[in-house]
């Protein structure tokens, strides 16, 4: 039985405890280093009007798999 993440169960506190500017800064750093951002994915689903098709674990797994196909320059 797979454990649900805090964000999926609704017990995630991070986005509420991190103030606006710091949250934006974190998101910028996450994008620069190519880190998964499930919050942005949920926001995207909300904007386009469909429920999330991926759980956080699935999203993270797919994100890492896709990152592994990328090229790093010499």
């Amino acid at each position: 039985m797979r454990r649900e993440t805090n964000r999926e169960t609704g017990s995630e506190k991070r986005d509420t405890v991190v103030p606006g500017f710091a949250a934006r800064l974190l998101r910028v750093v996450r994008r620069i280093v190519g880190a998964p951002d499930y919050g942005a994915y949920l926001e995207h689903c909300r904007q386009v009007g469909h429920p999330p098709r991926l759980t956080e674990r699935e999203y993270v797994a797919q994100f890492f798999e896709s990152k592994g196909n990328g090229v790093r320059c010499c």
Partner: peptide
């Protein structure tokens, strides 16, 4: 840490 324990917590 990032995959199993705290998914996606890269920071």
């Amino acid at each position: 840490w990032m995959k199993a324990w705290r998914p996606g917590r890269v920071g």
